[in-house]
Nucleic acid binder design. Structure first.
Length: 391
DNA sequence: GTTGCCGCACTAGGAACAAC
DNA sequence: GTTGTTCCTAGTGCGGCAAC
């Protein structure tokens, strides 16, 4: 049946075939022209939209600047309300003289503190917006020796100005936190003991309790393709705290430094060196040690004698509802490999799991043994090294 | 129920600042 | 100039919500 049909078709259709081909050719040609036109139109539209986007971006930028300037002015006037008349004159004169809308206002007031050597931000990077909180020192515009206007970095935020949200951590009947506990990418193994009678064991921002210990994953210093677990500890160095980092794959080579940053910079430098990466080796010690984590700060602040640390500024914390926070699901190493931005690095699955657990869905039990975090992918004990899926 | 958008929380990396 | 600290930005995923 099919055979006869096809036969008939070929046979009878021969004469027509040429015309059909011809017509088909014309149709194809026509369609091709149509598509070509369409592509051209789309290209034009794309160009138009791109330009529009660019314009909008510029507009947003200028509006942002304008907003910052206005906020700045507002805070200056607010300040002037509470200051003496002399300052008011200073401020108003500044306000009137500041006509270029640049960042010239981000400078230090001689009346508040002596003007230090200008260290203007000269990069092309966006200047940090002045916030009402940091505007206390902004009043007299100064010009950078190079002729450029120095971009003044926002002064430190008041430590207790903001209530920080923290995740709920289970406590026992005595009010002690149940450890180990997963906080972010860190596992808190021990909170240690507050040393309140020595000033070097705390500052206004952080308390460094002796015995404090956390565990986290980071790039190995000896295996360029692996991550390993690092235990960060604080030990009593008598005069000052000693920050100790022990890599699980180098248990006999602890890194000891007088600061958290110093210790972590060593790790980052070595981890980068073995990967032959020459980008910055800077590391934020407090971040890596977990001191910038609000939950950990709260836990330390809740330790006995923490309130006796005279330089430490007590901070306000608020326990979050059981919201499963988002956040980066990638381990430190993924980012540190520099590929996170282009998405070529798969996060270690374990880190994802850890984060899910950490995020309030189930904190207490799942992290009960402290190893659970990095031991996903079915390797209960051997979580020391986490192979990256791609490098 | 699915999809898409938006806001939030969080992180690593790096820039800027401060102290020496 | 170096080292350490703090802050900012970009990137990411999830929950909430509305629209379909």
């Amino acid at each position: 049946m099919a055979q006869s049909h096809s036969h008939t078709h070929t046979h009878s259709g021969r004469g027509r075939h040429a015309t059909t081909t011809h017509e088909n050719g014309a149709v194809t040609q026509e369609r091709y022209q149509k598509l070509k036109r369409k592509v051209r139109d789309m290209q034009n539209e794309y160009d138009k939209l791109t330009k529009e986007l660019e314009r909008s971006r510029k507009r947003i930028k200028s509006l942002k600047k304008e907003k910052e300037l206005l906020l700045d002015r507002i805070s200056q006037y607010e300040d002037s309300d509470s200051s003496d008349s002399e300052k008011s004159v200073e401020l108003s004169s500044e306000a009137t003289s500041d006509s270029d809308g640049s960042s010239a206002q981000h400078s230090q007031a001689s009346s508040v503190r002596p003007i230090k050597k200008a260290r203007g931000r000269l990069s092309t990077k966006k200047l940090s917006p002045p916030t009402p909180a940091n505007n206390i020192v902004n009043s007299v515009p100064i010009t950078h020796p190079s002729g450029k206007v120095p971009k003044k970095r926002a002064s430190k935020r008041p430590l207790n100005a903001k209530t920080m949200k923290v995740q709920h951590v289970e406590q026992d009947e005595n009010g002690n936190y149940k450890l180990p506990v997963q906080i972010g990418i860190l596992t808190v193994l021990n909170l240690g003991t507050v040393v309140y009678d020595r000033d070097t064991f705390h500052n206004e921002r952080y308390i460094w309790p002796v015995g404090y210990a956390v565990k986290r994953a980071y790039n190995s210093m000896i295996n360029s393709k692996a991550q390993t677990m690092y235990v960060c500890k604080i030990e009593d160095g008598l005069e000052n705290p000693k920050f100790v980092i022990e890599a699980e794959d180098q248990p006999n080579k602890p890194i000891i430094a007088n600061t958290a940053t110093g210790a972590w910079t060593t790790v980052v430098r070595e981890a980068n060196a073995i990967r032959q990466r020459d980008h910055s080796n800077s590391a934020s010690g407090p971040d890596y040690f977990g001191f910038s984590q609000a939950t950990i700060r709260k836990m330390i602040q809740d330790l006995p004698n923490a309130h006796k640390c005279k330089n430490y500024v007590m901070q306000n914390f608020e326990v979050m509802k059981n919201r499963v926070a988002g956040g980066r699901r990638r381990g430190a190493g993924a980012r540190a490999n520099g590929n996170a931005k282009n998405g070529t690095v798969e996060s270690p699955a374990s880190v994802n799991v850890q984060s899910r657990e950490e995020n309030g869905v189930e904190t207490g039990s799942s992290v009960g043994d402290g190893d659970v975090v990095m031991s996903n992918s079915g390797e209960g004990e051997g979580e020391g090294e986490v192979e990256l899926e791609s490098e």
